[in-house]
Computed example of a mutant assay.
Amino acid sequence: MRTGDEVRRDILSEMRVKLFEEFHRNFTRKAFFDKPWKPRRIERRGSLLLVSGKLRRSLKATVTHDGLRISSSMPYASAHNEGYEGNVSVRAHTRGAYKARRRVKGRMRRVDVRAHTVSSYTYKMSLPERRFVGDHPEVRRMVTDIVSRHLEQWGQELAAKMQRHARSTNNR
Rank of each mutant, 00 (worst) to 15 (best):
K99I: 14
V113Y: 03
L12G: 01
M162T: 06
E43D: 12
D135K: 04
L59C: 09
S52H: 08
S71F: 04
R141D: 01
E85T: 13
A61W: 09
A61Y: 10
A77V: 05
P137C: 12
T28I: 13
S126K: 01
Y76N: 09
R44V: 15
R57K: 14
F23I: 04
R149V: 00
M142C: 08
D135Q: 07
A166Q: 07
P39W: 13
M1C: 07
G86N: 04
K60S: 07
S13K: 06
E21G: 07
S52D: 06
T64Y: 05
H150S: 08
S13T: 10
P75R: 10
A115N: 00
L50H: 13
L12E: 07
H24P: 02
S58K: 02
A159R: 02
G53Q: 12
K18Q: 10
F32T: 04
R56S: 15
F20Y: 09
Y76C: 07
R29F: 11
M108T: 03
V111G: 03
E157C: 10
R57N: 12
L151V: 00
Q153V: 11
K60R: 10
W37T: 11
R109F: 13
P75N: 08
G134T: 09
T3D: 10
R141K: 14
V133L: 01
M162G: 05
I146R: 07
W154F: 11
R40L: 13
S78I: 15
R140Q: 15
V51K: 15
F20A: 08
G46K: 00
H150G: 05
A100H: 07
V104Q: 06
V133A: 04
M1I: 06
V111C: 02
L55D: 01
R9M: 08
G67C: 05
T144E: 06
T144I: 00
K124D: 10
M142R: 13
A159H: 00
L12R: 01
S52V: 04
A31K: 08
R101D: 07
F23D: 01
Y84D: 00
E82H: 11
W154N: 02
E22V: 00
L59W: 13
V113W: 07
H65F: 06
K161Q: 12
Y121P: 00
R114T: 09
H136I: 09
R57C: 08
K60V: 08
R95G: 06
S47N: 10
V143H: 02
P137F: 09
A79G: 07
Y98W: 06
V139Q: 01
F132T: 01
G86L: 10
S148W: 09
Y123F: 15
H65Y: 04
Y76H: 14
S71P: 00
R101E: 11
A97I: 12
L48E: 07
R101S: 13
D112V: 10
T3R: 09
V63K: 08
V17G: 04
G106H: 05
K38Y: 01
W37Y: 14
